[in-house]
Design a protein around this nucleic acid. Structure first.
Length: 263
DNA sequence: ATGGTAGCGCTGCTA
């Protein structure tokens, strides 16, 4: 099974690029973030015509998460345990079971400025994600928590740590909050397969030619439970998808993370 | 050079 996660930075703007990528990469399950779409506008029929069932959770201009699967999709849920699905303010989590794997697509808050209310909300969101796993996922099962975590786990996950002093994504409190999620019993499978940095990066600023200068961060992660991590054949960043499409379409500022699992 | 790009949507916010 090929599992992927991709922050598309607007599904409407990226749709042609996404379709092209689906055909080339041929993933079985895709976690998507920043669709910036409503549930009504989400192109579920188009994805169905390509062989994918889907679930989307979005309410407009910001955020929005989805899961696509061509190996089954059931028990979808788009809110934290104990959260009223009708009262979700920010659409940042959706879960479904695909071919025996509990898949969670996450878009962790950016945090904006260290010390701000948004930074505090980011830390709280990560703590809530850990509580979600404790409350809703049986230990020892097949779990994949994938998405844009907006945290670079270590200094080797940024192109130049000195350029990030005082910035979000690299602070010890954010990294500790992420480690608390990992401590549930998850493996960062790309890092597991690529022990040395820098990178592999998954995000590059649109500005200043950052992608071509190699100035990125590794903030999109595939975190797999230990039993599932034992089935990983390969785990990598699909840098090709960060380049323009065949028709010159603008790419997302994120590249997909792809994980191939043995059956 | 205190900058830059992209998306949403129409003014400035978010990233």
């Amino acid at each position: 099974m090929r599992l992927a996660t991709w922050n598309v930075n607007s599904l409407k703007a990226r749709l042609a690029r996404v379709e092209e990528w689906l055909a080339v990469a041929s993933p079985d399950v895709v976690c998507m973030q920043e669709t910036k779409s409503t549930d009504a506008a989400f192109p579920s029929e188009l994805f169905a015509s390509l062989g994918y069932e889907s679930v989307h959770h979005g309410n407009g201009r910001w955020n929005g998460v989805a899961i696509l699967s061509r190996v089954g999709l059931r028990d979808a849920r788009a809110a934290f345990v104990g959260e009223d699905p009708e009262a979700v303010a920010e659409c940042r989590l959706v879960a479904a079971t695909c071919s025996g794997v509990r898949v969670i697509s996450v878009y962790v808050p950016n945090g904006r400025v260290v010390g701000s209310e948004f930074y505090a909300a980011k830390l709280a969101w990560l703590a809530r994600l850990r509580a979600e796993l404790d409350a809703s996922v049986p230990a020892g099962g097949a779990l994949a928590v994938c998405g844009d975590f907006n945290v670079a786990p270590e200094d080797r996950d940024v192109f130049d740590p000195s350029r990030f002093e005082g910035a979000t994504h690299v602070t010890e409190r954010e990294r500790e909050a992420l480690r608390s999620v990992l401590d549930w019993g998850l493996v960062d499978v790309v890092r597991d397969r690529v022990p040395d940095g820098p990178g592999p990066f998954t995000w590059w600023d649109y500005r200043g030619g950052a992608f071509h200068k190699g100035e990125g961060m590794r903030i999109d992660l595939a975190l797999l439970s230990t039993p599932l991590a034992g089935r990983v054949r390969s785990a990598y960043v699909d840098r090709e998808a960060r380049k323009k499409g065949s028709g010159g379409e603008v790419p997302s500022d994120h590249a997909p993370v792809v994980v191939d699992l043995d059956d």
